[in-house]
């Protein structure tokens, strides 16, 4: 009962969050006035009538509250409006570009999870040794390296100097395509995924190692050892599972951080994802696209936070629901 109430309360808070973000952006976009007027300001032969007509076409007449309610109502039914620049339904664009973003983000997190488990087990079981010091130092360095700079370095080394991996985009153009489309797609994913995995691994290793060191000192670990369990099972079966609990909450935050900085990642690799779409949208003041992209990023991020919150409560019965 308590858990269900907690989940419902979190759901309500998350809904407020999404509404809040949409309000902030809507208010901002409105503060600049009619985007159509700004976009058309330098075009020759634009009369007031034409501007008014185009504004009406994009639903930019009427009061601010009316417009917000119309937009929100349509969005809840899955209609994100029409992009001004691309003249396409925003909803479809969000799906296409969103999938591209997830295509690099999800492997980036999964690979990092595996790598950080390996690294932190290696370090925590040999606390204060050279291996431990090396892992911590590498993780600290990696954590402080700006992600986009890692991307730039990767491109410089693997695309320009060694010339073995593509430097931009998600696909080759049809005429350049040498292998099957799937292999070509995977080939393009290597560098962006490496960059994301690199940063995530460094951050997760720092957290997981600290947590694992702490867990290995607990009495139940001593008890497990005293009972004669092989060290492998003590570490991998007992300690690691418990050490993961504090890291779990951070997983949602990390995923959110990666999504939030997707504009940077996707600019470095010219990746056709949500972040790149968002940059184009705000540069060109394509307001339906700005709203749509922000909403999708916010919802994904909030969903990740919500899922980790719930998982946290379900996994660890010691957590007090507050």
């Amino acid at each position: 009962m308590g858990t269900l109430r907690y989940i419902l309360r979190r759901l309500f808070f998350c809904a407020c969050l999404v509404v809040g973000v949409s309000l902030i952006l809507f208010a901002l976009i409105n503060a600049i006035g009619n985007p159509i007027e700004i976009l058309l300001a330098e075009r020759p032969g634009m009369t007031d009538e034409i501007v008014a007509e185009i504004s009406r076409y994009y639903g930019l007449d009427g009061s601010v509250t009316d417009r917000y309610l119309t937009w929100a109502g349509a969005m809840l039914q899955g209609d994100f409006g029409t992009s001004i620049i691309y003249n396409q339904p925003v909803g479809g664009m969000l799906v296409t570009f969103g999938l591209e973003t997830l295509k690099i983000q999800v492997p980036g997190i999964l690979i990092a999870l595996l790598a950080s488990v390996g690294a932190s087990v290696l370090a925590a079981t040999r606390q204060y040794s050279r291996v431990d010091f090396g892992v911590i130092s590498a993780a600290m360095l990696g954590h402080s390296l700006p992600g986009f700079f890692v991307g730039i370095l990767l491109i410089l080394v693997f695309a320009y100097w060694l010339g073995i991996l593509p430097s931009y985009g998600a696909y080759s153009t049809r005429s350049m395509l040498m292998d099957s489309e799937i292999i070509d797609g995977l080939w393009h994913m290597v560098l962006p995924v490496s960059m994301l995995a690199f940063f995530n691994t460094a951050t997760l290793t720092l957290l997981l190692r600290a947590s694992l060191v702490d867990t290995l000192r607990q009495d139940y670990i001593t008890a497990a050892r005293a009972a004669g369990l092989p060290e492998r099972r003590v570490v991998l079966g007992h300690a690691l599972r418990n050490a993961f609990i504090p890291v779990l909450t951070y997983l949602g935050i990390l995923f959110g951080l990666m999504l939030g900085t997707a504009p940077v990642t996707e600019t470095v690799f010219t990746w056709p994802g949500l972040g790149a779409l968002y940059i184009m949208a705000i540069q060109q003041l394509d307001y339906p696209l700005i709203m749509g992209t922000t909403m999708v990023i916010t919802v994904m991020l909030v969903a990740a936070t919500l899922l980790t919150d719930i998982a946290y409560v379900l996994i660890d019965p010691r957590i007090r629901l507050g």
Binding site: L25, L28, Q283
Partner: peptide, 25 residues
Amino acid sequence: RFAEFFLVIPVFVVILAVVRLFGII
């Protein structure tokens, strides 16, 4: 709760929009 709101929203994305739009305002 107010603080949590700012912790969870995609801050970087919002900042980009504000910088761009404020420059026009």
